[in-house]
Structure formats: structure tokens, C-alpha cells
Design a binder for these strands. Sequence first.
DNA 1: CTGAAAGCGCTAACAA
DNA 2: TTGTTAGCGCTTTCAG
Lengths: 338, 338
Amino acid sequence: MFEPVTIKDIAKALGLSTSTVSRALRDTHEISPATKKMVLDYAKEIGYQPNPIALSLKERRSKSIGVVVSEVANSYFSQAINGIESIAYDRGYHVIISQTHESYDREVVNVQHLASRSVDGLLVSLSSQTNDISHLKQLHDKGLPMVFFDRVAEEINTHKVIANNEKGAYEATAHLIRSGYKRIAHLTSSSQLSISIERLSGYEAALNDHGLTVNADYIKHCPHGGMIYEETESKIKELLALDEKPDAIFVAGDRLSTGCLSVFKNLSISVPGDMAIAGFSNSDVLDLFNPSLTSVRQPAFEIGKLATQMLIQLIEAKYPVEEFEKKVLDTELFVRNA
Amino acid sequence: MFEPVTIKDIAKALGLSTSTVSRALRDTHEISPATKKMVLDYAKEIGYQPNPIALSLKERRSKSIGVVVSEVANSYFSQAINGIESIAYDRGYHVIISQTHESYDREVVNVQHLASRSVDGLLVSLSSQTNDISHLKQLHDKGLPMVFFDRVAEEINTHKVIANNEKGAYEATAHLIRSGYKRIAHLTSSSQLSISIERLSGYEAALNDHGLTVNADYIKHCPHGGMIYEETESKIKELLALDEKPDAIFVAGDRLSTGCLSVFKNLSISVPGDMAIAGFSNSDVLDLFNPSLTSVRQPAFEIGKLATQMLIQLIEAKYPVEEFEKKVLDTELFVRNA
DNA sequence: CTGAAAGCGCTAACAA
DNA sequence: TTGTTAGCGCTTTCAG
């Protein structure tokens, strides 16, 4: 149905061998200018396009990289993907995106799928439900290049690119403290995620540094990372039911931050009047929100770029890479008060 | 670096021929149960994974589909992509996403890139700057299956899936009229886009049906579809500079709607006090906006699903398909007033 | 029921 | 400088 036009066709038409045509097309020196011109002209005339699949088979690589994220409909990830694309594209790589929707099972399936489609490398941000990373470890051990970004697996020794989650969390929490709030709760994603751990640690450090004590009742985890409204709502209701109700919340995720605002809006609880909120978010319409959200913004585009550069470096390395690094990029705090 | 495990390895280890192994793996009937079991067991043991590239080369298809959208960081498209993925994965297809960022040049390059990577088909939503569609026409003529969604090219005879833009625009405009507004402007994307034409037509119909006249000065185009804040701002300022200043605006796009709200916020113009706004948007945080936006929501997920089903049907068709259809899905109006 | 051989499109030794 | 040949991993005639 879809017309071929192969090197063989050109060879036949021009009375040459396929290897000569190949050489002309690939511009090697061992070819006469005349033949080369003839081949190139004819190739252009009939619109010859090399078959990348044949090439992949031969060179044993696909010039494509797989991306595993929880959701493209998420400002952070869509910005990161833009960064990924911007680099990949320039370097001639295809980007294959797959979404876990925060499900461990889908993550396993997607990773397997990508690997079996022989991507040359993987850019991974773990799902919030992922505890066991053997599906990735196995591929990594086999030699599949892999770079983690955002939600990383410490157990796998490879490059990692993350935001300075601890510092970002510290700043947001400190901002709430400086604004006069004393009972600051923390709403976060599942506890095993690297970002949860880092952000929790920044939150705790800020409390400690400002003479406030960490109250375990004030820390609530949403395993679905804000994907399920009811989950977020019920955790917030737990906070509101406490004897010493918090007066502010530091929220550790994009979806959770907006989810949180929605819950308060629906409960008709005034923000920041009755409850102040600061949270991680990369949305670019935050300025339109009311109640407004003081936000911690990650350099998502930059993170995507860096991760991709490192991955391609790994893919194209002549010798196995032994030294891995973790890049940490600063976040930015946007104070908004309505 | 990355270990192979081919059919040949199995054959050698088991003292069989590659064809026998292939047959065992592919579960044909012309194979003895014993051999089959032996092969399957061994294959599982050593973790054999068929090489899809070799298969693609043989079968002359890649089991992947290319998606061309303007931006993944856009609620409409990210939702549509979710729909696309949901079907594609089930049917064993990979989804390769590329973004035009509303640029014609990038669209041409991306389409070429996808085609040369031999995707089996294309799901396309045109960039706002695309006038010339010969890059697509050429591939379509060559037999590459193609389905348009959202921003379609009427000149290419193939399946199309769109929202009922005209009706959606009509309803939004009629809503503004019923709310008492009489000087309703229209802010839209570039004039050649199918969605612009359809939405403009719905807008005009609503005005006419309600005894209002269409004023050409009230219709403003943003060729970059809201990607450039300054463009949106300047068009709005043009509207505000008119002698008979509009009292409401019907906005024809996601990015434009939020951009519009931002502009008014920055100009300290009260919405809907001084200016009412209704617009197309698929954002799922609209409820948090203030000023709030009365929105026309498209069934993006559904559109993505349908387009993908139709594309795969085209790809897998035994005989060339001659009959094409255009599916039109209803939008939903969400009235919000703050 | 199994094996040998050809071929998908391309490149790269090796010959000529 | 050009042609011949083999091979990347797999399926599929065609013989046995």
C-alpha cells in the first residue's frame, strides 16, 4: 500500500550495485564524483527515503528513547517533556512517551513494552505506587541506559536529575512560618517516593529551625498523589478533625496543590483566611487562581533537557560509564497572597 | 552492551533449526507438542524477547503511530493523547508524539521525521500557522493512513474527528446574549484553521439568531493561538480602544481563554463586571479561577479514542478504504459566574 | 513434523 | 572505484 523505493530500485535503474548506491548516498570518499551525482540526483528525483528500520536492525539501535511519566496532563511533566524533546530532536532521537497514571502495574507493563520495542535508553520518573523497582533494575543490569528524573530510585546506580526538593520545601514552609502560621500541616504523596522523602525533610528542617515541633498527625500521605479527589478530600478532613486544627498546609505536589484548593473551595473554607496553603506546582495559570497559591516551581524544562543530555551521553558512550552523578536544580518560590 | 538472546541462540542450545524455534514460538500447528514445550520453556528460562525491529523489517510495518499536536502542555491535547494512548496500547501500537508549537516549519519537519521513521499512520491536528498542507497531502497520496482531529484539513480526503465547534460556539455566545450582553467580541486563532472557521460561524449564527449584527471590528485573530502573551494582549487592547467597546468576549481556544483572563487581570479590568468572558477550554482547574470562566469543554479523551480507532482500522484494512467519515462530538457548556 | 534457504533494506568486509 | 557477499533477527516457502 505504502510505496517502497529502496536502494535496490536505484541500483537496478542505474545499472549499479546496491553497495555503490549505498556508498554514494552515504557520501564515502571511495566513490567517483560522477556516480555519486548520478545516484544522488536520481534518489532525489524518485524521492528515496532510507528505511530506518533496516538501519536499526543492522546497527542494533533504534535512535529512540522511552519516557516514563505518571501523566502528560500535568504541568510539570509536560514541561519536562518539552525539555526532553528539545534535546532528543536535535540529536536525532525519537521520543516515545508512556504514562503510568500513578499505577505500578502500568509502569511495569510500559517499561517492558518500551524495552521490547528496543528503545536505546529510558528516562524514568517513578509512579507514586512503585515500591519494587526490579523491573527497572533488571533492564539496567542488562545494560539498558537509564536516567531518572524527579522521582528517582536511589537503589539504581545511574544518572539522576532532580529539583532541590528539600530546599524548595524548606523555603515554602519557612514562608508560611514567617507569615505567622504556627500549626503547619504537610500533605504529600506516597511515603516511599524520593520527592516525598526530600520534601518532608525540608518541611521538618524548616519547622525545627524555627522552633516548631514536628507533629506526626499533621503529616498526611495521599498514595495516589492527588489523582483521586476523594483521597485528597478525606486526608484534609482528617486534618480538619484534629483537636489542634492546623492553620496552614504545605503541599508537596502539583496535582495535590490544586486538589487541595478545590477541596477547600468546595468545603467553603476560606484560603488563606481559615487556612493558608503553599505548595509545589508548575501550573502556568496559577496567577488566575483564587484563592491564590504560593507555589514552589521546579525548572521542569531544564530538568528534562539535562536528563536527556545525560541519557544520550550514556547511550553513545564508547565505553561503559562507571561514574554517575546526581544533578540538583534550584526551585523558585512564588509568593502569592489573596 | 545490551545483551541479545535471539532465536538462533535458542536453536543452537536446543539443537534445532531457527525455523523450528520460530514455529514453536509462534504457536503454529505444524509442530510437535514436545518440541514446542521444550522451546517455550527454554525461551522463558533465558528470557527471550523477540526483536520487534526485525519483525518490522520483515512485515514492513512498525506498529507505531505518530501524533502531531501543537503542544502537550495544553489540557485539550493532553487529554486527547490519553484517549489515543488508551486505544493504541490495547491494540499493540506505540504512540510517538511530536509537537509543532504552532509552527508550520516544525510541523513539516515533524511529519517528515515521523514518516521517515515509518510510522504506520498519523494522527494530525494542524498547527495554527499551517496554510499549505502539501507535506501531508504528499504522504497521504502515497498511501500513508492518516486521521485528522480537532484542526482538520478539509482538502485531504480521510477520516476526521472533531467537536461540534459551531454548536459549542453558538451556545457560548447565546449564553452571553441571554446574560444581557449586546456587544460581544470574538477572539480567535488564525483564520484559516478549521476550528476558527467553525467557531466563528457558530458565533455569527448566535448573533444573527438573536437580532444582533456581526461587527467585523469585534473579531480579532491571534495567529499564534495564545502562545504569545503580547499578541493576545495587543488584540484585546485593540478591542478596548474601539469607540463602541465590547462588553463581552467569546474566546475560541484554550490558551487564548486563559491568556485573555490574564490580560484582564493585569489590566485590572473586572471580569465579568466590566467585561464578560466565555471561551473554549479543557482545563480541569477552571473552578479555581477568579475571575471565573464560562467554558465550552470538548470531549477530548473521546476524540482521541475515536480518531485512534479509525486510524488503526485504516492501517489494518485489507483493502484500500474509499469511504471516509467525519465524526462530530458534542461539546459541553459550563456556566460559571463570579 | 523439521530443516535449509531466501528475503525484508541496509552496510561493510573482501575481492576485483 | 566498483561489485560480490554475508549478515543484522525473523518468518516463510519449499523440500525432505
